[in-house]
Design a binder for these strands. Sequence first.
DNA 1: TGGCGGCATAAGCTGGGTTTATGAGCAACG
DNA 2: CGTTGCTCATAAACCCAGCTTATGCCGCCA
Lengths: 309, 309
Amino acid sequence: MSNADEQAGPTVSGSLAHRVPDLGALELLLAVARLGSLGGAARELGITQPAASSRIRSMERQLGVALVDRSPRGSRLTDAGALVTDWARRIVEAAEAFDVGAQALRVRRDSRLRVAASMTIAEYLLPGWLLALRAQRPDTAVSLHAGNSTVVAERLLSDEADLGFVEGLSVPAGLDSAVIAHDRLIVVIAPGHAWARRRRSLAADELASTPLILREKGSGTRQVLDAALGGLARPLIELSSTTAVKAAAVSGAGPAVLSELAVGEELAMRRLVSVPVDGVALARDLRAVWPTGHRPTGPARDLLSLTRG
Amino acid sequence: MSNADEQAGPTVSGSLAHRVPDLGALELLLAVARLGSLGGAARELGITQPAASSRIRSMERQLGVALVDRSPRGSRLTDAGALVTDWARRIVEAAEAFDVGAQALRVRRDSRLRVAASMTIAEYLLPGWLLALRAQRPDTAVSLHAGNSTVVAERLLSDEADLGFVEGLSVPAGLDSAVIAHDRLIVVIAPGHAWARRRRSLAADELASTPLILREKGSGTRQVLDAALGGLARPLIELSSTTAVKAAAVSGAGPAVLSELAVGEELAMRRLVSVPVDGVALARDLRAVWPTGHRPTGPARDLLSLTRG
DNA sequence: TGGCGGCATAAGCTGGGTTTATGAGCAACG
DNA sequence: CGTTGCTCATAAACCCAGCTTATGCCGCCA
């Protein structure tokens, strides 16, 4: 109703939160899909049957689509309902990753597994691992601290963490490590930029002589790039988060260099395209690390075994 | 507080919806991250500054983590806040996909682009495409109808749809088509099953002689598999949705055959592992289709151009 | 023909999120 | 050195979404 609503297209009104049912409603819908009954879903979520009934109904009203076929002997999803339920599942899965991550961020002294990880890993990989860990060891309380390689090493060596994850080129002194995955930095650009239509690969000197959107000096990503180019990377802008770099690249500010972990989605949806590069070592290992000699045991060992392919 | 809360692990209480902030709060957090000020974010979302302040505060209370550093000249994310914001962004992106999909499901006679698509495509690919389409043509109203190849063909030929997407082996009569992507069926199994540790590939006859978790006869997925095996696939169970098949496989019921589009997440998180297969043609094309002669124009052409790699 | 499981409707309560109104800290500027 | 303008915090009043309890209708099955 206020003035900020009119900026978007004509089919849109209000913010996302007004057009998308809340998490409770989506969970309820998933339960109905799984159990085939409103009352059953209500019981599972610890609410009453009328509450479930009304909530599903108001969700249908909100979306303008019938989701559930009610009958005196149960409820089944409509075709549209099945589709909506699948889309809802994505939201709920993202929420589960959020939840397990947020729980780990809470500093708790009863943590049975203390993890320290670099930003990129904490952002993209750890929630999935923690979810898997919780699936097989539901009562393991995990705490997470994110920081660069130096911080990870400090926490491990001062016994403030049991297991670390780093993404740099070298393993900090005093730590043993195991490679758990491989990552590659890639050059990305908004579609529409001239580079997006190039056929030849970029050469190293071409990359080094072009101003790029980069993470700040000191970040793992920047270290790898500087090393690969011999410290010659020319920044167009320096930004302090992967997300900011992505946003700048998507908006057409110029070419950016990012971990392929960070841009999978953008590449798939063609908001960014990657530019092949020749003769530059942009691969890097993602490693689990622990104090030399102290092989991970207990929960740390469980988590480690989840992470290796 | 009610009796259903105690079923989960000791660190958990209540459902996801009680532990994860609602979409409005997450959107607000993203706005704060982007604009660097609570008041600014509030203005953008069309609420007042105290509302934003209180909402962020209650989110911090809920998560047990400080998210923003307030100062008399703005607010910045804490380290934990940056991580939380990135995880929140995933939820919001899933919600955007949900939103654009749900809007398209609403039957509207003012639709400027009417799409008919097979289930797998509607489920996994279309929301992303629609999001991209909305980014470059914000005022295009899209309607979506999901069904199998036959239904898609009928709707196109009776002028109830402008553009279709199918995943079968053959193009229905009366339609022209363009391949927009490739898909492969893969055999997946819960880790722990003997096949998960196999080194050799499966042979065709081995696959044909093993009872499998399958989609029902008539589904696109099943058609491709039956054709590849010469109609010999032995069902262990037949289920009516991709999701149900996945759930059965994850729970260890046996090997399943699914589109690789459907199991990317599960493979990455090792809830499922794929079993290599030899000598069976499980690849299939994903095609855009339209009535013979009527080359897509206008919004249909825009969408089509977004989908081809 | 009860009994059971499924869903809908109605009435009343509660709490979270909102608004308006106000105050206080810090910076820049004449 | 006060004024203006930005920031955020607090307090009180309000409103509505979603919950519960209570009830009724429908269909299936023993």
